[in-house]
Simulated scan of single mutants.
Amino acid sequence: MLKIGCHLSIAKGYTKAGEDALAIGANTFQYFTRNPRGGNAKALDEKDLATFSRLFEENGFAPLFAHAPYTMNLCSDKEEVREFALRVFQEDLERLRRLPPSYYIFHPGSHVGQGVDKGIEYIVDALNKSIGADNEVPILLEGMSGKGSEVGGRLEELRDIIQGIRHNRQLGILVDSCHLYSAGYDVVSDLDGILENIDKTVGLDRLKGIHLNDSKVAFASNKDRHEVLGEGTIGKEAIVRIINHPKLRHLIFNLETPNELEGYREEIAYLRKNYVEEAS
Rank of each mutant, 00 (worst) to 15 (best):
Y181F: 15
G115H: 04
L93P: 10
L96N: 05
V151F: 00
I24C: 13
G193K: 02
G38H: 05
E121A: 14
N40R: 15
I161C: 05
C178Y: 01
D48N: 11
A43W: 02
E46F: 04
T201M: 02
N213W: 00
I105C: 12
Y275C: 13
I210T: 07
S53R: 13
A68I: 02
L191C: 11
G109H: 01
E94K: 14
L2A: 11
D20A: 09
V217T: 15
G172R: 03
G172A: 09
R98N: 07
I268S: 10
Q114T: 10
I120M: 03
P100Q: 06
N128M: 05
N135V: 05
R206G: 09
E79M: 12
E157S: 12
P36C: 11
L93C: 12
E142F: 04
C75I: 01
V187I: 15
N35H: 05
H211A: 11
R241S: 13
A218Y: 04
S9T: 13
D205Y: 07
F29M: 12
D192F: 03
I268F: 06
N222E: 10
Y185D: 09
P101C: 08
G263V: 08
E237F: 04
E157I: 07
K247T: 02
G109P: 03
L49D: 07
E277T: 13
K247C: 02
N40S: 13
H7V: 14
R265S: 08
L261K: 12
D190T: 11
H245L: 10
G164S: 08
E196W: 00
F84A: 15
K12L: 06
R249K: 15
A238Y: 03
F65A: 14
I139F: 01
D77E: 07
F29D: 09
E237A: 15
A279S: 12
I165H: 04
T28A: 10
V240R: 08
A68K: 03
C75A: 08
T71C: 06
P258L: 09
L93R: 15
T201L: 03
R87D: 14
G60H: 02
G39Q: 06
L86G: 09
A68G: 12
E150S: 12
E260Q: 10
K223E: 13
V137I: 15
V217R: 11
G39T: 08
V175P: 01
Y185F: 12
H211Q: 07
N274K: 09
E231D: 14
G209Y: 01
H111S: 12
V112M: 15
N168E: 02
Y14I: 13
L174V: 10
Y31V: 13
V81Q: 08
G232Q: 06
K236F: 00
D160A: 07
Y14W: 11
R154Q: 13
G232T: 07
S177Y: 00
C178A: 14
D45W: 00
C178W: 00
S215W: 01
S215P: 05
L96K: 06
V137L: 02
L49M: 11
E277G: 13
V116F: 00
F84H: 13
I139A: 10
E260Y: 03
I162D: 00
E136F: 03
L207H: 07
I242G: 14
I268D: 04
I123N: 05
H245P: 11
A238I: 04
E121R: 07
V175N: 05
S189T: 10
S76G: 08
G203L: 02
M144F: 06
